[in-house]
């Protein structure tokens, strides 16, 4: 239909001005008017609906965040407003033992011994061990891949890191429990418990190597070649150029990578749930001993929710207080990582 109109328009340009339209031309004019009406810009309801449906899809991610915040906050508030719990005690008590509730206790009478510090300590300690492993190894492999490795070597080695990144964490947990722990136990002179913080920490380190490595490699690769060449031109060796020119120039990206790796370690659940044990760390007697059990925040949530705890019990609600702590701290780490990489990025033309 449209092509028909188009063809006629070409034959006779519209509106022979000043002349009386003949009968045929009159019909044409009416048809042109119809066509113009058909093509006129008008609200298209279907298009509008689609637009809002798609907007809704985009908003689902907002709902998710809002949901996470609301769910955790409201239940955490319910938890904190119970008589037997005080927020200050929650963040300062060094004991997590809700089962040992004794209303007549001499220490903090009337309060359930439910302090998040032992869980927080185990989380930070295992993550720290992970970073000790992952920062040098991740950075080292990033430098090697970006600066030293020939194209072919890089193309074969990078997929290996990707495979490592894709391994489900429950498998890594199995690895920590059945390989790393016996390995540590075989070292003479160490008194390593079956469940300990060192093994999951080390395996989490292996887990975040790919994260740190790939982000660091991006940061290193984005340092322009001119900087390296200028450094070579001044007589620096390749290694000196890397440590004194390239790495400082890429520093913001590297720091962002480390922080993101830390966030992943803090939020990791399965490795610690399987290998770090289900007893809260003993802050008083075994502080900073990596070879004893220490349940982390994530491990605790996984173990308790997996059990048969009634949904209205204090301990169940306490999980959401932990969840909120976890959410806020990982979110903060992520935001800091983004901020560092934006704020301190060296802009090169």
């Amino acid at each position: 239909m449209e092509s028909e109109y188009g063809a006629e328009n070409e034959q006779s340009p519209p509106a022979a001005v000043g002349r009386q339209p003949g009968p045929v031309a009159a019909i044409r004019m009416r048809r042109d008017a119809d066509l113009a009406a058909a093509l006129r810009k008008r609200p298209r309801v279907g298009e509008m609906i689609i637009r809002y449906v798609l907007l809704f899809c985009g908003l689902v991610s907002i709902f998710t965040t809002v949901g996470i915040v609301i769910v955790n906050t409201t239940t955490a508030i319910e938890f904190f407003t119970v008589d037997e719990v005080s927020p200050i005690d929650f963040f300062t008590n060094t004991v997590w033992r809700p089962a040992a509730y004794n209303p007549d206790a001499t220490y903090n009478p009337g309060l359930i011994p439910i302090g998040v510090l032992p869980l927080l300590y185990a989380t930070l300690f295992t993550s720290f061990i992970a970073l000790i492993v992952a920062v040098p190894l991740g950075l080292g492999s990033a430098i090697y891949l970006a600066e030293y490795a020939p194209e072919r070597v890089r193309n074969t080695l990078k997929p290996i890191l990707e495979i490592l990144a894709g391994i489900p964490t429950v498998v890594l947990g199995y690895f920590a429990l059945t390989f790393m722990t016996p390995l540590l136990q075989a070292i003479p002179g160490l008194n390593v418990q079956i469940f300990n913080m060192a093994a999951p920490g080390l395996v989490m380190g292996v887990m975040i190597i790919p994260t740190i490595s790939s982000m660091s490699e991006d940061a290193i690769s984005s340092v322009p070649r001119e900087l390296r060449e200028a450094s070579y031109g001044l007589g620096a060796t390749r290694f000196e150029s890397i440590t004194k020119v390239v790495l400082p120039a890429a520093l913001s990206g590297l720091v962002a990578a480390f922080i993101l790796g830390l966030a992943r370690a803090v939020g990791e659940t399965m490795i610690v749930a399987l290998a770090a044990g289900s007893a809260p760390a003993d802050l008083l007697n075994n502080f900073l001993n990596p070879f004893v059990a220490g349940e982390t925040m994530t491990g605790h949530i996984a173990r308790i929710t997996g059990g048969d705890l009634p949904y209205d019990s204090i301990q169940y609600r306490s999980l959401f207080a932990i969840g909120l702590t976890l959410f806020v701290s990982t979110l903060a780490l992520n935001l800091i990582s983004q901020w560092v990489s934006r704020r301190f990025r060296e802009a090169y033309e």
Binding site: T64, N72, T269, I301, F327, N334
Partner: peptide, 15 residues
Amino acid sequence: IRNLAGVPSIIYGLL
């Protein structure tokens, strides 16, 4: 969306 990608999966479990 960028920040949701970094939320620990156990938090989604609580949600």
